[in-house]
Amino acid sequence: MKVSEVVPVKFVGGKMLILDQSKLPGEEKYLEMETKEDIYVAIKKLKVRGAPAIGVAAAYGLYVSTRHSHAKTLKEFRPEVKEVADYIVKARPTAVNLSWALSRMMDRLDTFNGDVSDAKQMLLSEADKIRVEDENSCHKMGEYGLTLLKPGMGILTHCNAGTLATAKYGTSLAPIYLGTEKNYDFKVFADETRPLLQGARLTAWELTKAGVDVTLICDNMASIVMKNGWIDAVVVGCDRMAANGDGANKIGTSAVAILAKEYGIPFYMFVPTSTIDYDTKTGDDIQIELRDGKEISEMWYKQPMAPQGVKTYNPSFDVTPARYITAVITENGIVRAPYEENLLKLKERTVK
């Protein structure tokens, strides 16, 4: 399987399909999405995950959830669509692409002039645009990221920011795929990423399928592989970046960043501009999703592996302070500190 064959969200033959990532790597199964409840559950239960892929799924989901509306006028149709958007956006609070994609779809609908049938087709067209833009964005991030890497490097990654998390290519894995095409011979080390094992189930799976040299390690082994001199760079994705450069990503990312700084290893965070939340001042303002503690104690075991009734704390994300991030890679270029100043310049340049 090549990277181009991994499509986490697709719309073909009038059907919206998502690859059920909760079943990987054991089963590759696509699920058809037909209702707002289907979309909500798919996002909530991590059947589709990764900030960009969630945005794409939400966009298509808004269309498929409203395409059978019986509204006769836009005045009737707009409130129906908004109700669906308000429902889907509650599925996961941290990944900003979810609210970003739905807001973009609603903004287009609010300014659209025409009949309801044309409005529905516009929503589908806008979802297509979001998907294509993300694919192009990931490819550009891959090109920029590759300028920071050299052939033969050992690269550590955490969670999954590959093609499974995006429309295609991935964010932090994009330079690895592009480098592999150029025979860079990267040696990738993938953290397993407890408790949901995205690194083990997803990153190791897609890199192996694409012929990339990948070694799976437990999360608590990151320090020793760095100490051994096997890691030359760390690449990770991001679910929401605050205006000051603090980045929320899968739980455990901040620990990797702190280790990388201790060992003098560059830590690169790959952030699509759609993931930068300029309305969020610092990482302290990012809402962190808390999930069921059974994911820690029971989910992957035949029998519980913790005492009955023990308290659990299961945050899905943590925030890496900007001071630990060597560079932020976007589709519009590489940004370095001071982030509050340079991210704003990036925004102004992008708008122009």
Rank of each mutant, 00 (worst) to 15 (best):
T215R: 05
I224Q: 13
A243Y: 06
D185W: 09
A260I: 03
G211Y: 10
L216Y: 08
V225F: 14
T157F: 06
T215D: 10
P175D: 09
Y184M: 12
S223E: 14
G170I: 14
D232P: 12
G199L: 03
F186Y: 10
S172P: 00
I176V: 15
N228H: 11
A243R: 12
G211A: 07
A260D: 05
A260E: 05
I155R: 14
D232C: 06
R194T: 02
D232S: 05
A242I: 00
D219S: 01
A222V: 00
N220P: 04
G237F: 05
I251Q: 04
T208K: 11
A222D: 01
K250V: 14
D213S: 12
K261Y: 05
D239A: 14
H158P: 03
W230C: 02
T253V: 02
K261N: 15
G264C: 01
L259S: 08
H158S: 03
L156S: 02
Y169G: 04
T171I: 09
A200V: 14
A167M: 08
V188W: 05
L164P: 10
K250D: 10
A161K: 13
N228L: 15
Y177W: 15
L196R: 15
K250F: 05
D185K: 15
R201W: 09
A204G: 13
N220W: 02
C238G: 08
